[in-house]
């Protein structure tokens, strides 16, 4: 039970990170490899906000989301928009986002140095909860709740709102969306901003949860995030949540039953098996190709 909960908590972070990742992929068909850098940057910026500006956690998180959103706009503007209409936009976007991601990390090192940093003690109320004999912190529970709430809110946004309709139209066919009067550039930028804001919240929560923020924290979670969006189905929001939780639980079970050295193999075995058996992922639907 304890281990199951541990798995869910680990998984909720994976999910939160992957939701932003998969949003951009689902709507814009682009893999944004600067996402892990935004994840790391927001953790460091969040720490500074709490440490220097003295913000409490409930104010720091939205602030971090805003900072993340701005970073997302920068990423879109610098690394993706100039590539619009290029035949190799797919590969080029990977590279440009890697390049920009590297620059963000370099700037972080300039600003904060290479050392591990952390939120000051007591940023988030300490305290333990107990459920069915399993112990966990309030923060862990909060992360799970925040992940689910953000996911539901985002799913609602995409399914119901005007912006969501525009997003889906762009996902379906950008050219047609433009003809129908959708401002594709604005929708694209907004999508990036939302995606990055989610990644930023994930980064800050992650740093709080494990009491550590490192320059390399994004790349450590990057592969897991990729695995999650494949498992859940590229572009599927509920898929990212379920995929994240599933991966978290699977890893924990692997520790318990197979051995900790093989834990990381689980993500890739899961990923590989699913790609072979069901490439569209658990929740993904196969896209029809127009001939």
């Amino acid at each position: 039970m304890q281990q199951l909960l541990n798995g869910l908590f680990v998984g909720s972070i994976y999910a939160l990170f992957a939701i932003g990742f998969t949003l951009v992929f689902g709507i814009l068909d682009r893999l944004n490899l600067a996402h892990p850098s935004v994840f790391a940057a927001s953790a460091f910026i969040g720490i500074e906000l709490v440490e220097v500006a003295g913000l409490p956690w409930w104010a720091a998180l939205p602030a971090v989301a805003v900072v993340g959103g701005v970073l997302g706009l920068v990423v879109e503007r610098v690394a993706f928009r100039p590539l619009k209409g290029r035949a190799d936009a797919h590969f080029a976007g990977l590279i440009s986002s890697i390049a920009l991601g590297g620059m963000i990390i370099a700037l972080l090192q300039w600003r904060y140095g290479p050392d591990t940093r952390r939120f000051p003690a007591g940023t988030f109320p300490d305290g333990q909860l107990e459920l069915l004999g399993a112990r966990f912190t309030i923060l862990q529970a909060a992360i799970l709740v925040i992940s689910v709430v953000l996911m539901v809110a985002l799913a609602w946004l995409v399914a119901r709102s005007r912006l969501g309709r525009a997003m889906r139209a762009v996902a379906e066919n950008p050219t047609a969306a433009r003809v129908l009067g959708v401002d594709v550039d604005r929708v694209t930028a907004t999508t990036f901003a939302i995606s990055a804001a989610l990644g930023a919240v994930a980064g800050a929560l992650f740093a709080m949860n494990v009491n550590s923020a490192q320059l390399g924290m994004g790349s450590a979670i990057e592969l897991k995030g990729l695995a999650v969006i494949i498992v859940g189905g590229m572009g599927s929001l509920p898929g990212a949540l379920v995929g994240g939780l599933l991966l978290g639980v699977a890893e924990v079970l692997a520790v318990q039953y197979i051995g900790s050295s093989w834990r990381d193999l689980v993500a890739f075995a899961l990923l590989f098996g699913l790609l072979i058996l069901r490439p569209q992922g658990i929740f993904g639907s196969r896209r029809l190709r127009e001939v």
Partner: peptide, 17 residues
């Protein structure tokens, strides 16, 4: 004997074990 990766930061499952 439990192992993890240098990049890991969440050790709760291992510590529970």
């Amino acid at each position: 004997t439990l192992t993890f990766s240098v990049a890991d930061t969440d050790f709760r499952p291992l510590l529970t074990e």
